[in-house]
Amino acid sequence: MTKLGAVFLPSNPPERLRDIARAADEAGLEQLWLWEDCFLNGGVAAASAALAWTTRLSVGIGIVPVPFRNVALAAMEIATMRRMFGDRAIVGIGHGVQEWMAQVGAKAASPMTLLREHATALRALLHGETVTTHGRYVRLDAVALDWVPDPAPELLFGATGPKTLRLSGELADGTILVAGTSPEGVAAARAQIGGREGHELVVFVPAATGPTAERRIAKQQESSGMDFAGAAGDAKAVAATIERFAEAGATTVVLQPTADDPEPEGFVRFVAEEVRPLIG
């Protein structure tokens, strides 16, 4: 069965998260995803709060930029969330937007090398290993977590380009694709990732409902330059779009509201109560 989620856009002020997360939980939404975009909401703080305010909802961070965090700190944060909230806490890692990474003085000369080193050390730490490594970017001396999560969490990569997709297929348990990826793009990404059994494929899909849905989706596509506009219309129309992504290989479809959505709480209820029953 295709998993279904929705996005809490970081353009919403942090104080809106509580009401939206609770609305999602009460409506039975499976997943609510957050972004750690610069310079908006902090992903770990926001996700932890959303998890504490809810009881059933899974909360994902898509993604945590690895240049931002020492890998030991990233492991401590992820382990803490998993021990507190179990598998409801989902964290993806990735390169981050290179322009933003440069702004904060964290841009790596080789993002691929950094991601490989970070992911390798992170996986080992989360599996309870003592890690010593002297890489180009990641350097640890006999580091081990005291509070290891059990079981160890899945490792997800945010990826777009072919090199990162191949690396995700090699090292990660799942891949997160950006909004605007078409169903054809999902199929192409699946091919780049390779045939690793059980590899999750999460895709963000722009979506809108209500009388102004088509206008808002068109406006977003024009302003963002997305290749794929998204889903606009009633629950049946949105569900038909989700099925196209599932057929292309997506295992989780996360619907992303437009920035000018008039009622974010209503959007998560729409996804959970009207769209979910139509998805196989």
Rank of each mutant, 00 (worst) to 15 (best):
A218Q: 14
K219I: 06
K219N: 08
K219S: 15
Q220F: 07
Q220R: 12
Q221M: 14
Q221I: 07
Q221C: 10
E222H: 07
E222C: 04
E222N: 08
E222I: 02
S223Q: 13
S223N: 08
S223D: 03
S223W: 05
S224R: 13
G225V: 03
G225N: 07
G225M: 10
G225S: 10
G225K: 08
M226N: 15
M226G: 09
M226E: 11
D227R: 14
D227F: 03
D227I: 07
D227V: 09
F228K: 09
F228H: 12
F228D: 08
A229H: 07
A229L: 10
A229T: 09
A229P: 13
A231S: 01
A231P: 02
A231H: 02
A231C: 04
A232L: 01
G233V: 03
G233T: 12
G233R: 08
D234R: 05
D234I: 07
D234W: 05
A235H: 01
A235R: 03
K236Y: 03
K236N: 10
K236E: 11
A237S: 10
A237W: 00
V238S: 07
V238N: 03
V238L: 04
A239T: 08
A239S: 05
A239H: 03
A239N: 05
A239Q: 09
A240S: 04
T241V: 14
T241K: 12
I242H: 01
I242R: 01
I242A: 03
I242L: 02
E243A: 15
R244V: 04
F245R: 08
F245S: 06
F245C: 04
A246F: 05
A246R: 15
A246E: 15
A246Y: 04
A246H: 13
E247C: 02
E247S: 05
E247D: 12
E247N: 07
E247M: 06
A248F: 05
A248R: 13
A248E: 11
A248I: 05
G249Y: 06
G249L: 09
G249Q: 09
G249T: 06
G249S: 11
A250R: 13
A250I: 12
T251K: 10
T251N: 08
T251S: 15
T251G: 12
T252V: 14
T252P: 06
T252A: 14
